[in-house]
Every structure is written in C-alpha cells, then in structure tokens.
C-alpha cells in the first residue's frame, strides 16, 4: 500500500513542486546571468538581490487579464497551452533523480517510475508538445503567430531526428532503454557516455537548444522578427503556461542529458582514491549540480550568440547534424562489433 500508492504520490508532489520552483528560479537565474554578461545588475528590487522576483512574476501572471482574441478558435486556443505544459511535466516521471535511498528502513527508489522503455517514453511525450505550439499559433488567428508556429513545427520536427539519433548511440552502448539501466551501464563501464560519445553529446546539446526554442535557435519566438511568435496573442495564465513549459522543457532536456551523458546521480572519479570524498555528496546533489551546469550552458549561449535565420537553421539541421548523427550511429555500431 505504502510502496504502491503513497510513496509515488509523495514523490510526484515533490518532483512537481521542485520543478515548478526550479522553473521560477531558472528565469531569475537567466536574467541574472544575462545581466552579468552584459555588465548590468539584473532584477534587484524584489527582495535582496531580486531573490523574490519570481514570486512577483508569478503573481503578476496570475492576476493579469486573460484575453482571447475575438476571432480565435476558443477551444483550441484554450487547450493549446495545456497540451504544451502537460507533456513537459509528465516527462519527469521516468527521470532517475537519485539512486536508491534508505529512509526508516524503507528503500525508496530515487525516481517516480522505472519504465523499461523510459527513454522511448521521454521521446514520445516530448513529441506531443509540438502540437500545442502548432495549435496555439494556428488558433490565434494572427499572422505573426501562424508564422511562428510554422517555423517551430518545422524546426522541432527536423531537430528531433538528430536528437533521437544521438540517443540511439547511447542505447547501443548501454544496451537498455531504461533510464536507470543507462546510468548503471555508465557505472559498470567506468566511463560516462558523454566522454565515450563526444560527438553525440555535442549534437544532443545543439539539438536540445533547438528543441527548446532557445537562442540561437529561438526563431519561433524571435521577438525582433515575429513580435512574439506563436504566443503573440496569449496573455495572463495561458501565456504563463507556455512560459512554464518552455523552461520545464529546458529542465527535461538537461536532466535527460545528465542521465544519458553525464552519469546521472553518480559521483565523478569513483576510482581516484584521493577524490573519494566526492562520494560523500549525496547522489541527488550531483544530479542537480550537473543539471544546473547544463542549464547554465543554455543561458551562456543565449547571452553570446546572434540568432540563426530560418533557412540556415534548416540547413544546419538537415545537412550537418542529421548526417553526422547517422554517421555516429554507424561508427558506434562498427566499433561495438569490432572491439
């Protein structure tokens, strides 16, 4: 009873709250990091050093008027943000945040569920989110929103191929689709897959930027070109859903990257004796640290690079990343057979 129902429920609540709070503070972190890069201070007003800024933002979004354009398709317009947000949140179900914990004699697995096709689940759930973006842009009945959603559907679909190809190489190395199994495989091999598969890791990183509509691939919402892209017509809570989903997606791809390429909750250098104290840090802390490192790279890239143009983005995806990813699969397969 406890293990089957209450424990998962408690964990779901913890993960959900943690994700939402992280999203709030990622926004703050983003503003701060960008400000530091750009010799500014960033938010400083709400709380010391703007630490309460996310609360103010959330409050503002909650109380803002929620406008539905007169000629929008009301049902689809309402449903679209939910379709984006829900998959972004349920993807966390299979992410192993930590190894097994022991609490009051009870062994608690550090994840909500360990599905034996966990990676497949993440890919398919993430694929649903695109519909929300397309529907949102289409149902707004606005030309800017339509252009934005067309861009993003083309972009997400093309980069999904490259990203999935890099995952294939990881599956080949690990021999399993289970997220937990992949981490354990890295433990067994003694190498994180990010070091064994640098090319795949790089393609995954670029693809992840594109998949989450982040700079330099933030074309669907390029404010200098398309006003705000697919969510031009959205305001208030429904805008907040898109906003949440974007950052939740960032966290999803970062946690997946951590699990697949950076050894999940594992401590680094377990075999170096004088660094053994690193093992004292709990697994979930390592996981968080790696995830934040990955997220920081997102913010860093945003503050540094200009934006790609639509056709260049497509060229990069189809002419470079996808062939490279396929080549990487072939080479990995050959090495696996030969070595």
């Amino acid at each position: 009873m406890v293990e089957a129902l209450i424990l998962p429920l408690v964990k779901i609540v913890i993960v959900l709250v943690a994700v939402l709070v992280t999203v709030m503070y990622i926004v703050l972190l983003e503003r701060k990091v960008q400000a530091w890069v750009q010799v500014r201070l960033g938010p400083m007003r709400v709380g010391p050093h703007g630490i309460l800024q996310p609360l103010a933002d959330v409050l503002k979004l909650f109380v803002k008027e929620d406008i539905t354009p007169a000629r929008a398709d009301k049902w689809v317009f309402t449903a679209a943000p939910i379709i984006v947000l829900v998959p972004a949140l349920i993807a966390f179900a299979v992410i192993p945040f930590a190894g097994d914990l022991t609490l009051f004699g009870l062994t608690i697995p550090g994840r909500i569920a360990d599905v034996n096709v966990g990676l497949l689940y993440v890919i398919s759930v993430a694929g649903i989110g695109i519909y929300g973006i397309i529907l949102g842009g289409w149902s707004s009945n606005s030309k800017w929103a339509l252009l934005g959603s067309l861009r993003s559907s083309a972009q997400l679909i093309s980069y999904e191929i490259a990203v999935t190809m890099t995952l294939v190489t990881v599956i080949m190395l690990a021999g399993t689709l289970s997220m937990v199994g992949i981490v354990q495989a890295q433990l067994a091999k003694g190498w994180w897959f990010g070091f064994m598969q640098p090319v795949a890791f790089f393609i995954y990183f670029v693809g992840a930027l594109a998949e989450t509509n982040r700079a330099p691939f933030d074309l669907p919402e390029a404010e200098q070109e398309l006003v705000a892209g697919f969510h031009t017509e959205y305001s208030g809570m429904r805008f907040a859903f898109y906003f949440l989903a974007e950052y939740a997606n960032m966290i999803v791809v970062s946690t997946v990257a951590t699990t697949l390429f950076l050894g999940g909750w594992l401590a680094p250098f377990p075999n170096v004796s004088w660094l053994s104290f690193l093992g004292l840090v709990p697994g979930w802390a390592w996981f968080m640290l790696k995830t934040f490192g990955f997220l920081y790279a997102f913010l860093w890239v945003r503050a540094t690079f200009p934006r790609y143009r639509y056709d260049q983005l497509m060229r990069l995806g189809w002419k470079w990343l996808i062939p490279l990813a396929i080549l990487n699969v072939v080479v990995t397969g050959l090495l696996k057979v030969l070595v």
Binding site: Q34, V39, A215, P216, Q224, T304, F305, R307
Partner: peptide, 16 residues
C-alpha cells in the same frame, strides 16, 4: 543592429 539579429549583449556593451 546586433540586437535585431539576436545578439543582445552587444547592445548593452554599445550603450555602456
């Protein structure tokens, strides 16, 4: 010009 192309940092550097 740089901000139009998405490179916001240059804008702030220029304004500085």
């Amino acid at each position: 010009h740089a901000a139009d192309l998405g490179a916001l940092t240059v804008l702030l550097f220029g304004l500085r």
